[in-house]
Design a protein around this nucleic acid. Sequence first.
DNA 1: TTGTACGCGTTATCAG
DNA 2: CTGATAACGCGTACAA
Lengths: 338, 338
Amino acid sequence: MSKVHRVTLDDVAQAAGVARATASRALTGSGPVSQTTRTRVEAAAAQLRFSPHQAARALASSQAQAIALVIPEPDAFILGDPFLSYVIMGVSEVFHDTTYQLILVIAHPDDPPTKISQVLRPGYVDGAIVVSQHGSGQIAQAIDEAEIPIVYIGRPWSGQSLLYVDVDNRAVGHIATAHLLRQGSRRIACIAGPVDMSPVDDRTSGWRAALSAAGVEPGPLRHSPFTASGGEVSMRSILESGEPFDAVFAQSDLMAAGAVRVLTEADLDVPGQVRVVGVDDAEVGRATSPPLTSVTNPAEELARGASHMLLSILDGEMSSEQIHPQILNPRLIVRESA
Amino acid sequence: MSKVHRVTLDDVAQAAGVARATASRALTGSGPVSQTTRTRVEAAAAQLRFSPHQAARALASSQAQAIALVIPEPDAFILGDPFLSYVIMGVSEVFHDTTYQLILVIAHPDDPPTKISQVLRPGYVDGAIVVSQHGSGQIAQAIDEAEIPIVYIGRPWSGQSLLYVDVDNRAVGHIATAHLLRQGSRRIACIAGPVDMSPVDDRTSGWRAALSAAGVEPGPLRHSPFTASGGEVSMRSILESGEPFDAVFAQSDLMAAGAVRVLTEADLDVPGQVRVVGVDDAEVGRATSPPLTSVTNPAEELARGASHMLLSILDGEMSSEQIHPQILNPRLIVRESA
DNA sequence: TTGTACGCGTTATCAG
DNA sequence: CTGATAACGCGTACAA
C-alpha cells in the first residue's frame, strides 16, 4: 500500500527545468512565457500526465470553476417532467464546452435555507442557474441573497432580478386558448400548475385574456402539481363538479396526458366532445391518443440562453446595460386532440 | 467597490476566544473539545454566519466532498429517457442527506478521454456513479482507470468491477417474452437498444431463452437507440421487411411507444393483431393507447442502491468480502397492450 | 483539553 | 521573460 504520489505542478516545473510559477503561467496562459519554455512545460505536463488539483486551484484563484443548477423540488416526482430533463441537457451542453463543472442541487422546500446558502457562495460555485422557482418559502429568499450571479429560468416570482430567460407564458395561455376558440370551443377549462409559480400565473392570465377578448366566460379552473396524476386529479375534480366544459387547456403535456386518460375513462371523446391542448410539445404528448396539440416550451433553448447569460457574466463580458430578460416566443403545434 | 471580507475560521476562533485549531475541532467534531468551548464556538459561528470554504477544506483534508454522476451521452436526446431522470432523482435523494455534492458529468463519446479523467480523480470528486455505460470507446477505459471508487448502474460491459447494481436483465427479457407466449403469441419480434450495452445483450438473450424454452423460433430483431423514434425506425424496418410477427418485445417504454405509433398508423390493432410489451413502467407507457404492459426497471432503487454502495465505500464501511453486485428483480405490470 | 506550526497545490505579487 | 515567496482557508500532527 504505497502512497501514490500525485503529480504536482512542482514535478512538471522540475521536469521542465523551470520554476513552479513559470510552469503555472505556461499552462494557464496567465502571464508572459517564451515560446520555447512553454512548449517544454507543456511537453513535461503531458508526459507526466499532470492535471491540476482543482481544489488547490480554486483556493488560490478564488474561482471554483463550477456552477450550480438549482432545482427546487416541491413535489416528489418533479424530475419526471420532461421539461426539466431538457433543461438539464441544455445547461450541460453549454457548460460542457467550458472549464466549468455542473453541480446539480436539488433543493427540498423543507430543508434549512442554510443548506442552499452554503453552496451558493463564492468558493463553492461561481454562479448558479435556478429553474422552476416557486414563490413562497425561505429557499427563494436564500437564493435571492446569494452573493454570486444567479440566472433564472422562468421569471422569478418575487425579487427584482432581471437576469432571467423565459417563454412568454402569457402568450402560451393565449395561443392555446385562442386555438380552442377558433375550433369552436366555448367553455374552456384550465388545468393549471401550482399556484406559487410565475409561469402558472402567466399562462392562466393568458387564458383569461383570450377568453375575455372573445367575450366568453372562463370555464372551471384547477390547480395541481405539474404531473400526470396532477392532471388526473384536476380533471376528475372538474368532472365531478358538474361544471360544463367543452375543452381543456392543460398547462403541461404531462397534465394533459392525465386529463386525456380521465376523459377517455369517462367515455368522453377527444377531440369530439372535449378538445385538449397541452404545453411542452413533449414526447408523452405524442403517445397519447389522440396525439396532443401543444404549445411549445423550448426547454433546451431556455437552458442554453440562461447558460450563456451566466457565462457572459462570469467572463465579465456583460455591461450593466445588457442586463435584461430574454423572452422566447411559444408556438402552437397542432395535432389531433384539438 | 470594497472587497467583501469572507468570514473565515479565524474570525470565528477569535470571536470565541480560542485558537483556530480548536474552532476547527469544535465545528467538525474531529477532536476532543470541552462542552463549554464547543457551544461557544458554535454560537460564534452561527452569529458570524460562518460557512467553511469548500476548496480550502478539500485541499487540506484531501477530500473533495463531492461525487460525480457520469452519464455517457451517445445519442443526442438520451436524457429524454425517463429511466435517467429517475436515476438522477434517486442519486440526488441519497446524497442530499450527506455532505457530498453531486456533480453531473455528461460525457460525449467523442470528446477526449482526458476530459473525463480530469474529473474522476481524487481532489475533484471522491467517487463516481456511472450509468448507462456503453461498451466501446475510450471513455469506458478512462473510467475504468480512474483512481477513485466507481460504482456502476448496470453491469459494466467489460472490466471486472463487481461494484454495480443492476436489474436482472435476462429476467426482464424472459418475463416479457414468457408473458407474450402465455397470451398466445408465437412470433415475437424484439426491438432492442444499442448493441454495445450490457442490458441490451441481457434482455435479448432473455428473449431468446424464453423462446427456445418454448420451442418457438425467434421473430425479427432490430437494434436502435433507446428513444421513441428509435422504436419507430425499428418497427418500420420490421414491417417493411415483411417478416411475420404477432407480438413485440420493446426494450424500453419509449421505444414501445414509438412502435405502437407505427403499428397504429399501419392499421394494426394493439393488442388484437400485435401484442406489445415494454420495459420501464414509465409514464409514457400509461399514455399510449392502449396502455402498455411493461416490465419494471426500478431506476430509483438502482440509483439508491448504487449511492449507498458508494457511500459505504467512501465511509470505509465496506470490507472486501462485501463487494459484490446487487441484483434487483424485475416485475411484470400487465396493462392492455398485451 | 488547548494552542502552535506546518502542509495541502495553486495562483499572484513582486523583484530581478 | 523568469524565479522566489507570500497568500488562499483549513485540517492536523505534535507539543504544551
